[in-house]
Amino acid sequence: MAVSNTAWENLSNQAVAAAGVVYFLALLVHLAEWAAMRQPAADRSLVAAGGLEKRDGAGTAGDDVTDTTAGRGERIAFLTRLGFLLTALACAIHFVSLLGRGMAADPNRVPWGNMYEFTLSGTFVVALLYLVLYKKFALAWMGPIVVAFVLTVLMVAVIWLHDEVAPLAESLNSPWLVIHVVSAVIATGAFTLGGIASIMFLVKSRRLRLDAERGEDAAAAGWLDRVPSLDRLDKLAYRVHAFAFPVWTFAVLITGPIWAHEAWSRYWNWDPKEVWAFITWVVYAGYLHARATAGWKGRKAAMLALVGLGTLWFNFIGINYFSSTSQHAYAVERVVDVAEAPPLTG
């Protein structure tokens, strides 16, 4: 063996740290970009004329920044691109850290043995999906939010969830684990991205409402101009959710039960983890219904999407602290099913 397991583990730890630093740099660049977009008061009146249309019109990618001076537009475009490249670099390093976790285990395995690794993977998928969909959905405006989210969760993972590399518990040792967890992680990442779009929908619609009430029109200077129109946000959120929902269905209602059947003899046991996965599924089904129901489109649907996101993350983090009966091994490290016994006496 050329590289020892400890070396891999150290590599992984260092890569997490390095990825964190680069994400941080990306965040700084994006913040500078936002700052550059806040127009000085003098410019504002100039922009105001076209501002409203931009705000609710096609305003999307980095190239239609509401700016009058070409020089500033260029600077902003440069910062946008730099932020994107830094995020891509951080994401690549992030991947190295996952690889290191997998290679450090003996035997080598997928890096999803515990909460730390699951979080590492989940944030990686959020960043990766953002990068992959960047062009298709013109996600430039989302950069700062995604990077801030990934960075924060990564920090939480390192500080509170870090765990040494260890072999998988026996029941996790199944090819179904790979399929189940990879789909669950992808769906989690995608739901998170979709949730960000829904949050921005709510923020922006509130802002527009307030502006309308005050009779102001172009007051929302800076980054909210950058955020796409409500209609586009709504469609973006829908599309990302529509991608995530079948993946979640596959993870939770197909591969999960198959694996549970092999490992624990019951394909659906109403174990708390399963219950919450089911709740998440039902809430997102509600979201999809809401979008097709008159009166629930838009804000109510967006709120439902956020409820779904809440149940998703609660299931991942909260349920482990709430419930001790979960058989899911990254919740409670349980060697085997301990037979039922009366409490100790004597």
């Binding site: 708390p272 219950v275 919450w276 709740i279 039902v282 809430v283 509600g286 219904h289 009166g295 419930s323």
Partner: peptide, 18 residues
């Protein structure tokens, strides 16, 4: 709308069991 409300109710009703 009924379906939507029933779905949300189902989600809510599943919580106590967890």
């Amino acid at each position: 709308r009924t379906a939507l409300l029933l779905l949300l109710l189902l989600a809510l009703a599943a919580i106590p069991g967890s």
